[in-house]
Design a protein around this nucleic acid. Structure first.
Length: 705
DNA sequence: ACCTCATGTCATTTT
DNA sequence: AAAAAATGACATGAG
């Protein structure tokens, strides 16, 4: 059923996408669960969404939850149940009983009420709660232990048997509680859920409190104090002494049970030129021209294929064999919609200009920084659309620039230089540090000063090693500045969010993704900062480069770390197989992806752990409150019982003071006892008979056992 | 100098 | 059985 639902949902989505491509709009909202559910339903999608981003709105359904569908079904049912209203749970019998006993003003009145409790309990149980017991107030976090109802004949039906709504609710709570307990989560404690738990707890408490008194009220039901006093009886039933004993036992039981239980207890798009025009504008810039000339000269020396042709043609030809992420990722031909609306902002032009001027690689990611982003949900798709709408040649050229500008990049050469015996190069790169690159690496090691927390894996050495490579392939202060530009552009790209979350050590765990959305101001601030940062990028911007970013740049991996980490598995594998990558590059890319994924997973894991701790703390607090409440209740009950005992004794004396035997002499209470029959009649029994009666009863009980 | 906290990473387990 | 996610353990840097 779950699979069917998933299949239908996905099929529906795909069908809708197809229809939308044709131009037919389909409103899916009424057929689909909220988008978050869809997102959470996809593991890959979830992995791209930091757990904390959902914290506030999505109160914590663990993606590991064994059955999301059951949760949503449960939630729906729960809502339906809640819509039925809250059943009124009356106070327990013992409360009513005690209230009746205590509330009587006149002594006889109270006794009368006591002895006829069976007839008045119904009204008293719900209408007159004890003053000290303010009803359900503090629920425990989990109340799945539903005890069987200790129903008494006089208890209202709703209190003794769970109504269908109540039963459903309990079932829901149990179900949800299970899901929560399985992973130490208690996200499902909504306000209503808490209320339901409160009711459960109250019911349990009240039922517990009833146990001791139910027997009394049962046996005294329908009893009336009769004026006639019979001299003999053969009917074994309750004597007043026994009643007193029961009271004492109740008191003890209250103390004992309470004791034990308690102890356990971006900028917007501007109408304007097309991208091609933008590109032409860029190419027409003096700096660009210079750079392109440089490229041509480089191509002349390093690339025999393109040496005899104009650069524009060179690009196309060269790139046809080169790497294009967008080609890999967005191969489907799409309309070039929304491209014509794009106009580069001054800031973005600055970026392109400066990066080109410094000979830095102009990656696709860089270009995407020109494009506005709307929101996080549509970010990927938006960029996807935009990017896919571009002429692929544009990206091919960009990629070629990205590679060609790296001054003679040769993957094979790099791979030889970076021969890593272990895929986890972090542990084995020390050996690649050559003295030849020492001078440069000294300076660049300052540039790439470690900023990582986890430097326990020779990160410093690794840094030096890669820096050394930078020197080997022409690394210089120019390169350092170039990397500054790269870093700056990457940060301004549409991967800002991921970068901020996972790379920049931005401790914005609890912020929603839209809070991390690069606002125009933010974008501008980055641009504005760049001037200062250029000057201090050696110690500043480069510091923000993570180890993986440095490795990726050093190995000339044409994808950003964020791309590598966040792209779906299929795309990732497709990328690896489709592009010309050395073993070293593939290995590093896999490492980057693994680490990136694990980084997010660790963050999620810690978040969950924190939530578990917080929930447990909540539980502790609630249990403490419950304990205090129970202690109060016990004290109240004890007080009531002692009061009742006193009244019983008084009554006993009063009755015997008025009793006369056949000769009109007063009856000695030490020789006779009052006995209450099951039919409600009160008789006077000699104590010796009473004692023998007790022995018989005890024998019978033993035999029954 | 020591502690706590946040984070990244690896190895291993779980899904 | 393989891949991805989750998690424990460790190391590090910052405050």
């Amino acid at each position: 059923m779950k699979d069917l639902k998933k299949y239908l949902t996905e099929g529906l989505l795909q069908f809708t996408i197809l229809l939308s491509l044709v131009g037919v709009r389909v409103d899916l909202e009424s057929y689909l669960p909220p988008i978050r559910e869809i997102i959470l339903g996809s593991s890959s999608a979830y992995s791209q969404i930091p757990f904390h981003s959902l914290r506030d709105t999505w109160e914590g359904l663990h993606p590991k939850s064994p059955d999301l569908d059951s949760f949503f079904t449960a939630r729906r049912l729960l809502d339906e149940v809640r819509a039925l209203g809250d059943p009124r749970i009356p106070r327990t019998e013992v409360s009513a009983w005690l209230v009746h006993a205590v509330s009587g003003d006149a002594e006889t009145g109270s006794v009368s009420a006591l002895l006829s409790a069976g007839t008045n309990e119904d009204s008293g149980s719900s209408a007159d709660p004890p003053s000290d017991n303010e009803g359900p107030s503090q629920p425990p976090a989990r109340s799945s232990n539903h005890q069987p109802s200790h129903a008494t004949p006089t208890q209202p039906h709703i209190a003794t048997e769970a109504s269908p709504a109540e039963y459903t609710k309990e079932k829901q709570e149990e179900k949800l509680g299970y899901a929560a307990d399985s992973y130490g989560y208690n996200y499902l404690q909504s306000e209503n859920g808490k209320r339901a738990q409160e009711e459960d707890i109250t019911q349990q408490n009240n039922q517990n409190g009833t146990i001791g008194a139910a027997r009394n009220t049962d046996s005294s039901a329908n009893s009336n104090l009769r004026s006639e006093i019979e001299g003999n009886t053969t009917e074994p039933s309750l004597f007043f002494e026994e009643f007193i004993q029961l009271l004492a036992q109740t008191e003890n039981a209250l103390e004992g049970t309470s004791e034990t239980s308690l102890q356990n207890t971006q900028p917007s798009p501007r109408p304007g030129n097309s991208v091609n025009e933008i590109w032409q504008d860029l190419l027409s810039l003096p700096d660009i021209n210079i750079t392109l000339e440089d490229i041509q000269s480089i191509s002349n020396t390093n690339n025999p294929i393109s040496s005899s042709t104009p650069y524009s043609v060179d690009f196309t030809e060269a790139i046809s064999q080169d790497v294009s992420l967008q080609e890999a990722m967005y191969t489907s031909s799409q309309n070039d919609r929304s491209i014509g609306d794009l106009t580069p902002t001054p800031e973005s032009l600055m970026q392109l200009n400066s990066s080109a001027a410094t000979g830095g690689p102009l990656s696709v990611t860089d270009l995407t920084s020109l494009f506005p982003t709307t929101d996080n949900c549509s970010r990927n798709s938006t960029n996807q659309d935009l990017l896919s709408g571009l002429d692929e040649n544009v990206f091919d050229e960009i990629n070629l620039m990205s590679l060609a500008l790296e001054e003679g990049f040769d993957p094979l050469e790099v791979s030889q230089l970076f021969e890593e015996p272990d895929s986890d190069s972090g542990l084995s790169l020390n050996s690649s540090h050559s003295p030849a690159s020492a001078s440069i690496s000294d300076s660049s090691s300052v540039t790439f000063g470690e900023d990582e927390g986890a430097a326990g894996y020779s990160s410093d050495s690794e840094s030096v090693s890669y820096d050394g490579l930078e020197g080997a392939v022409g690394g210089s202060w120019t390169d350092i500045n170039k990397f500054c530009q790269i870093d700056y552009q990457d940060d301004a790209s549409y991967y800002d969010e991921v970068t901020l979350n996972n790379v920049q050590h931005n401790h914005t765990y609890n912020q929603m993704p839209d809070q991390l959305e690069p606002s125009p101001e933010h974008h501008y601030s980055w641009t504005a900062k760049s001037g200062k940062l250029k000057g201090s990028c050696v110690g500043g911007m480069e510091k923000s480069l993570s180890r993986d970013e440095r490795r990726a740049k050093s190995l000339k991996i044409p994808f950003s770390v964020d791309e590598i980490v966040s792209m779906p598995v299929e795309m990732f594998n497709n990328m690896l197989s489709k592009h010309y990558l050395t073993e070293t590059q593939i290995s590093v890319i896999r490492d980057i992806r693994r680490r990136g994924k694990n980084k997010v997973a660790a963050q999620n894991c810690r978040k969950r752990k924190l939530d578990v701790i917080l929930n447990l703390e909540d539980d502790v607090n609630q249990l403490k409150v419950q304990k205090e409440k129970l202690l109060k209740e016990r004290a109240q009950c004890t007080k009531s019982v002692s009061h009742l005992k006193q009244k019983m004794n008084d009554l006993y004396r009063n009755v015997f003071s008025r009793l006369r035997d056949d000769q009109g002499r007063p009856v000695n209470p030490s020789q006779y006892a009052l006995h209450c029959n099951s039919d409600g009649s009160i008789i006077v029994v000699p104590r010796r008979l009473f004692k023998s009666e007790q022995k018989k009863d005890s024998h019978k009980e033993k035999k029954q056992k």
